[in-house]
Each structure stands twice: as structure tokens, then as C-alpha cells.
Design a protein around this nucleic acid. Structure first.
Lengths: 234, 234
DNA sequence: AAAACCTCTCGCACAGTGTGCGAGATTGGT
DNA sequence: ACCAATCTCGCACACTGTGCGAGAGGTTTT
């Protein structure tokens, strides 16, 4: 009888009654606040105000703020599209999935700060894993290799998008302001001639950074998929 | 004349005088505190106490707490080993690099929460990029492909390690306590029979989760490298 | 020697945080 | 009408980052 990891998902939720607030309502408001003001903008008092209640009322439905974040976190994973692999074939299925995952994460930038802090144990996260696994099994992977392939793919998406979020947020809500970004980069990279040269090359070839990042993402994605396919053939 | 992205690296540091504290001293104390108590354990007052000074003294050397984190952040990237590619060949070089990066990150788990919040513009981060690029250039990549390969590789490492950190920290400093982890997982995954089946399979084949994660990391790494190599041949 | 001027320290205060507690309101069952 | 369970929330506590302005200490100029 060892003690569980502390998480919302290891405690039974309070049975839902008709009167009063509900967990769903609270999570919905949490998501709105997170999307509107980011992780720092979420406070129990603001959330209470949005719900038309006292701040500490929330603690009746949720043990603490982290549990609230776990709930919001898992909700996001539910928004990722994963086509039925039997119809599209595994490569297109995974590709679609990866792009959808990226889009969803960029739309809810605050998840970037949660991935390193909260384990993803919610039903949506698990269901995502489950369906992803089926796609990889259909591709021909067996046993633990299914999990390894799964981990590699999601790792690539996470690792790409998380720094993207950092950039996006450090440019602070403003319009892209590409020129100032280049200026900044020129300044900090002044001691690295090769990096500077690369920067001007990028300037020549690529018009805006959004498509650059998307191209880079696609490049890495096919790289990973090619690597996985190589495994299947050996 | 557009305004810069706000960052320590875009401001000239205060010229160093002999008396009083120094930036290096403060960063060192910051790192100690971060390693000892994590990101939440770092507060200006605690840091001041450790330095034997008032909390607000720090603001003479640093604009705000985020700048302090940027400095500590960049310091970590300086600890990653990157062999000389001409000696080892690019694959071994990158492999060594990736493992070193993972080890360093796991040793300073708080970086996991910073990757999604602060852009990596410090000299160590840039120097890492620079040297990585050289390795990929030596491998045979050209032009933007060098950056894409670079991005793909670091994305994979980031994306693997960041969730690892989440697990590590959610088990709260305690010894691994594998049994309770399995118990937790069995509980949350109770509605996903395939996942449960996979879990027992893992239990049979793998003794401890540390080596499991390491195997998984190595699997994904060779996957990415294989994918990159496939690009080179086409 | 005196005055002016930097460089640096830090106590105080402010607005804000998560959340424990306990008193009260609201509800449903008898 | 009474009781017990369920739910709300004001207050308080310890804590956060940081703006401000008074002062200390040292160096340079007059």
C-alpha cells in the first residue's frame, strides 16, 4: 500500500450535485482566463470574479491551483485531431496529428510552461497516447517499439513548439515586428560570424518567420518519420 | 530604429567596479539556490540572504528577476559537452552531445520550466548553436538545411527531457518508489485496456524506469539521426 | 580641506499571490 | 420544523516582485 502520486486524476472528484458551481464550469472559466491572459494572468481571485463567486469557493471543487491547471491542461489535449489511421495510412495520420498538435499548442501558449511541471495523466492525454499507439502498431511496430516511436514523435513536437512559444511570448503580444527581431539577433550574435552570415542568408531566402518555422517543423517531422520508417524496414 | 526584445543580452551590463557585489557572484548564488530548491524556491529575499545583503541590492546588477533567470539559464548551456566533430565524426559527436544535454538538463530540472518562457539568446546558447551547426555542416548539410537539422535535433532532446522532468518532480524528491508509480498509472489508465496491457508488458521486460527512459531516448535519437542521414543520401 | 559627485546598499511600502479556517448560508430529507 | 450535508466566502497569514528614496562609502574636482 504505497502512496499515490498527488494529482487530480488519482482522487475521486466530488460527486456532482445540482446546486452550486460545477467542475466543468470552473474549468471552462479557467481556460478562458488562461487563453486571455496567460499563465501569469490566472489567479484564484480573478477566476472567482469571473465566476461571480468568492475566490476560495473554487477550493471546494479542487484541492489546489495545480489541480486546476491539470484539468485545463488535459482539456487542451482533447482538442488535437487524430484521424483514423486505417483510412489515411500511418504516415499521413501521424503528420496530420503532429500539425494539429502544434497548432493547438501555439493557440494555448500556456501549455508550454506546464509540460515540464505536470505529468499528463488525464483521460484526454491518455486517449491521445492510446490512439497514437494504434497508429504506430498499424505501421508495423511491435512491443516496446510502439512506445518508443510514440515517445520520439511527441518529443519532437513538444521540443519544437515549446521554444516557439518562448519566442512568441517574448515578443510580447505585439505584431510580429520582424525588423526588431533581426536587430536583436544581430546584436546578441555579434561575436558569432557564422551565425550572422546564416542570418543574412535567411533574410535573402525567406520572407517571414512564420513560414520559416513551419518549413522547419515539416523538415524535422519528415526526418523523424523517415527515421521511423528505416526502423520498420530493418 | 525599432525597439529591441527585452532581454539581459540586449542591454549592456553595468561596468564592473571593484567594490561591492558582482554579477558573477550573484549568478553563482542563483544557480545554487535553483539547484537546491528549484524554481519556486528562488526568491529575491532568499537570494539576498544567501549573499548576505538586502534583497533589493540585486536590482542594482540586474533589471528584474527574469533577467536573473536568463543569466542562470545561459550558464547551464555552457555545461554541455560538444566534442570536436572532426575527430569523432558527426554521428558520434551529435550522439555524445545529445546525451550530455540530457544529463545536464536532468541535473538542473528548473531549466525545463524556462525553455517555454525565455528565448535562449545568451552567449553559451549561441555558442552551442554555432558548434552544433559546424557539426551538421561537416556532415554534409548545406544552407538552411543546417538550421533545420539543428532544430530537429535539439527539439527532440528538449521534447524528451522536459516531460521527464515533469515526472521526476511530480514524484517529489523521494526515492523512485516505482511501485507507487505503477499503482498510480494502473489507476488513471483503468479505462484504456491497451495501455494497461502495455504496462504489464513493460513490467515483465524492464527492470527499472531509469534504464527504460534511457533506452527510449537512445531509440529516438538514432531515429532522428537515421532520418537525417537519409536526407543526406538523397 | 571642503565640496561635489558617483557608486552602491537596503528598509519600507504597495499591490498582489495561494490557501487554511471557521462562521454562515443554502439545500434536501425526514 | 428540525437536522445534517453541502456549499459559499470574508478574513488573515505568510509570502512574492519591485519602485522609491534616504543614506553610506569612496573618488574626483575645486
Amino acid at each position: 500500500m504505497s502512496k499515490q502520486i498527488s494529482s487530480v486524476w488519482t482522487r475521486e472528484p466530488r460527486p456532482a450535485r445540482t446546486p452550486g458551481r460545477s467542475r466543468e464550469e470552473i474549468v471552462r472559466a479557467t481556460l478562458e482566463l488562461l487563453d486571455a491572459e496567460g499563465l501569469d494572468g490566472l489567479s484564484m481571485r480573478k477566476l472567482g470574479a469571473r465566476l461571480g463567486s468568492g475566490a476560495t469557493t473554487i477550493y471546494w471543487y479542487v484541492e489546489n491551483k495545480d489541480e486546476l491547471l491539470e484539468l485545463a491542461y488535459d482539456h487542451v489535449w482533447g482538442q488535437i485531431a487524430l484521424p483514423v489511421p486505417e483510412e489515411l495510412g500511418w504516415r499521413d495520420t501521424i503528420t496530420t496529428f503532429a500539425h494539429s498538435m502544434r497548432r493547438v499548442m501555439l493557440f494555448h501558449p500556456w501549455v508550454g510552461s506546464l509540460i515540464g511541471r505536470l505529468p499528463a495523466l488525464g483521460p484526454n492525454a491518455l486517449s491521445m497516447s492510446d490512439r497514437l499507439r494504434k497508429a504506430f502498431a498499424l505501421a508495423g511496430f511491435e512491443g516496446l517499439d510502439i512506445d518508443y516511436a510514440n515517445a520520439a514523435l511527441t518529443a519532437y513536437v513538444f521540443g519544437t513548439v515549446i521554444p516557439e512559444i518562448a519566442w512568441q511570448s517574448s515578443m510580447g503580444g505585439e505584431e510580429l515586428d520582424q525588423e526588431s527581431m533581426k536587430e536583436t539577433f544581430r546584436h546578441v550574435a555579434r561575436d558569432f560570424p557564422d551565425l550572422l552570415e546564416r542570418l543574412t542568408e535567411i533574410n535573402d531566402k525567406v520572407s517571414d518567420t512564420d513560414t520559416l518555422r513551419e518549413t522547419s517543423f515539416a523538415f524535422g517531422l519528415t526526418t523523424v518519420l523517415d527515421g521511423l520508417e528505416a526502423r520498420l524496414r530493418s
